[in-house]
């Protein structure tokens, strides 16, 4: 029962940003520069989902509730979905598929290069998120999916490099990812390892 609620909340949270953006679009409430607004909000939402995804494992140890691991995959996939929408908004709406400019941006603008790379890195992770791929990849799966940390850090750097002067939100995101990384590194070294009963979970 608790799991059903948890899953419903996850799907609700995952679809809310889409509903919210579509509603604002239809109601003409995206402001004077709707493309920029959609682009930025999709970027925010994507980064939030990726950070929350990475926070699930530590959270599991802190609250001692193993079942929440089951929402990690949908959360991560929502993060990837919004990142893809963010990229498509940039390429299709913002740049109207003018590849000359897109390529120049990706190659020459560091904040776009790093954001683009993060998206590319997450593609194989999204593909291999199915049960079949988890089985097929075995122990390699875990290693491959550590790329989620790399991509999220890149996302935070992309965010930080993009703003003009107000670094409040990017700094907050950077602090969060730092805490998550410290936890990750310490737990992988064997110290401070959470008492996780993996077997019961499966």
């Amino acid at each position: 029962m608790r799991l059903i609620i948890l899953r419903s909340v996850t799907w609700f949270a995952g679809l809310m940003p889409t509903v919210w953006l579509v509603w604002r679009f239809l109601d003409d409430r995206l402001g004077a520069n709707p493309i920029e607004e959609i682009l930025h909000r999709l970027g925010d939402v994507s980064l939030i989902f990726l950070l929350v995804t990475l926070a699930i494992t530590p959270l599991r140890a802190v609250v001692g509730w193993n079942e929440i691991i089951k929402i990690r995959r949908p959360l991560g996939l929502f993060g990837f979905f919004y990142l893809t929408m963010h990229f498509l908004t940039y390429a299709v709406l913002d740049q109207t598929l003018d590849f000359e400019f897109i390529i120049e941006d990706v190659l020459e603008r560091p904040y776009i290069s790093i954001g683009f790379t993060a998206w590319i890195l997450l593609i194989p992770l999204a593909i291999t998120s199915t049960k079949g791929w988890i089985r097929r990849l075995g122990k390699h799966w875990k290693k491959l999916h550590r790329l989620a940390y790399v991509a999220t850090i890149m996302g935070v750097v992309h965010f930080y490099w993009q703003v003009k002067a107000d670094t409040y939100w990017p700094t907050l995101a950077a602090m969060l990812i730092t805490v998550l990384m410290i936890y990750r590194i310490r737990s992988s070294r064997g110290r401070w390892r959470p008492q996780v009963r993996e077997a019961k979970n499966r």
Partner: peptide, 16 residues
């Protein structure tokens, strides 16, 4: 240094 100045979005227009 971080973005191109070659084009602009005129507010209210779609294509840069």
């Amino acid at each position: 240094p971080r973005w191109s100045q070659a084009r602009e979005r005129r507010i209210g227009e779609f294509r840069r």
